[in-house]
Design a protein around this nucleic acid. Sequence first.
DNA 1: GTGAAATATATCGGCCCGATATACTCATAC
DNA 2: GTATGAGTATATCGGGCCGATATATTTCAC
Lengths: 198, 198
Amino acid sequence: MSARRTRVLELAVLGLLYEAPLHGYELRKRLTFQLGAFRAFSYGSLYPCLKEMLRQGHVSQTPQAEGSARGGRRSRIVYRLTDTGHEHLHGLLTEVAPATSDDECFGVHFALFGHTGPDVRLRILHGRRDRLHTRLADLRARLAHAPGPADDYTFELYRHDAESVEREIHWLDGLIAREQRDARSRPGPAPPRPGPPV
Amino acid sequence: MSARRTRVLELAVLGLLYEAPLHGYELRKRLTFQLGAFRAFSYGSLYPCLKEMLRQGHVSQTPQAEGSARGGRRSRIVYRLTDTGHEHLHGLLTEVAPATSDDECFGVHFALFGHTGPDVRLRILHGRRDRLHTRLADLRARLAHAPGPADDYTFELYRHDAESVEREIHWLDGLIAREQRDARSRPGPAPPRPGPPV
DNA sequence: GTGAAATATATCGGCCCGATATACTCATAC
DNA sequence: GTATGAGTATATCGGGCCGATATATTTCAC
């Protein structure tokens, strides 16, 4: 109770560290590159998040002379996923699915689909599609009893927004169909593939 | 310096109060309805914002027995735009245009286009289009040297995202063309139209 | 060698959200 | 007649995440 709310960043960091141990700077780069597109995930969020995860024992840090093959570029604190962190990641990926309420949150979950089973993927995709349907209905209701024909900018915004939502729903439909097809051909969760340390 | 950063909510509230004096609850409803679509604009933001705007003298409150035509449903604090608030709104609408960096911010600015002149509208539309072009180039770069063909979810996310951005750019192109056409036929800022009090 | 740019960690102020508390009014059901 | 629930209305609290900023070091171009 009262515990942390959404914590997209936590999930994102756990997901990235699951693939390989990383230091903060590289973490931020991958955050921007792999999960970016929407949010920036600034250092102002990242370092406090890492600190908190250290406190909770989900990651461990190695402030070492390791890999000091000359130079070494300052100290370089490398963060590594612990066993509890791994469990926590698994929990977040499976349990938190229905809470995936906002746009950015979906993007991060989606980008981490490689780490999840088909059942979780389908649940998240369905959840997203349901939310978009709700929003589309809402937008259409507004468009229905909106005032002027074309000179109203709010109206125009809604029109474009509704089209975007329609398109994303269509996109999701395709993904869901593909996922269900794949699930029939090979059941069981996809094997995760942790990469080499960096 | 160090002053407040973006303050979309402030702009939104000023814009709504410009049309008519409102109380908090009604303000929130219009915020959700007219500028919603994306963000919720919860009370947790609204009331502190109103308090701050009171402190700065941009709005005045009338905690009255006014309109107590029986019942009256609790006290009802009606907020009204002051002269300084009106000036502030005008300043935000014109000066802040290039700082319109994020999605929600653009949405609010766009929804308030009825209160601005064609020059401001064009600047905001161009700014938005430029930012989307940057983002599109970024997405395409990622798509170019991305790994697998279709089994990569990140890749799929980028593909869909790039399409959405392309579509929005096209949408903006149309709006800009229309705006320029209109600007040629009737120059000068559009006359604002404050409505009756509520 | 000097300056720009990339690498790297860290903090601070602050916007805004979501949850929550409170209280009053009205309709409908029981 | 009274419980129940929904709508109206104001307000606070904790906290996630952002953007700006500070600070060092290294590397490369010129």
